[in-house]
Design a protein around this nucleic acid. Sequence first.
DNA 1: AAGGGCCCCTGAAAGC
DNA 2: TGCTTTCAGGGGCCCT
Length: 306
Amino acid sequence: MPELPEVETIRRTIAPAIVGKEIVRVEVLTPKMLLGASPAEFCQTLRGRRFQTVERRGKYLLFQLEEVNQTQAAKAAANFWLIIHLKMAGRLLLHRTGDPLEKHTHILWGLADGTELRYVDLRHFGRVVLWSGEQVPGLEPGRPAKASAAGEITATPELVSGLERLGPEPLSAAFTLDYLRAGLAGRKGRVKSLLLDQTFIAGLGNIYADEVLHRAGIHPEREARQLQLAEVERLYAAIREILTEAIALRGTTFATYVDGEGRKGEFANRLAVYGRDGQACPRCGTPVVRRRLGGRSAHFCPHCQR
DNA sequence: AAGGGCCCCTGAAAGC
DNA sequence: TGCTTTCAGGGGCCCT
């Protein structure tokens, strides 16, 4: 379940190991993970290019590519991006070329220095898109951008349209108390459902939504528009605090998550409610409750969260 | 607008 | 003990 802190940790561990390095070999072992290009197009386009930047937007990873030894004209003509969403169980791992292949390895990028970036995904839910365009859609943290004109390779809308429609980055200046207040006002849905809505805020998933609501002392089933200003202020602070702390601890390993170096995240030790149903709330000792909400499990303290 | 259900998929855990 | 069923979940999509 990589959410914003896990994806950011992966970005930070992967980036220094691949930026500036040329891709000399690409293998697609599971074609269905690819959108927008055939395996042959995918491999051919990536070979001979170099990772230029690695960015994150919400739970998406965005790899900008540049051609090795290209002229300025060629540079302008073909700007490619690799867009990856890890969904439930996707992992990006750094290996030496020739290391034994882990089960559920789907894509390999062999680099010129003998290292290899691997996409591994037990659930096969994640997707990888090759995107051609001057700019990648939705990159600005504040407002969704319109898609730039695509080149000869057209990405399948599914993944890219999700990227385009993302709401603001919760740790950016674009995510203000006023934005949160205005967004909650008038919404009849439950506050937790809204926190999980990626078009409202980018990057929260089930774990951090539950943790944020616990820190803010707000019941997940509260109607969004009924929150008082003091509660919205607590919610706003909790979102930024929890995400910042989780990034500092390199994310949460609950089941399968590891970063690019194979390391687990340490925020699991800090979880107050998620996965702790029946155990004592760290604040008041009341047993944590788990309840089905919108097809997902919600964990909360019935005493602290009203 | 918002909620429910379905789907993708595998492996762990629970049920029989 | 061993086979079968259930469940977990990000998010797109469809239907009401």
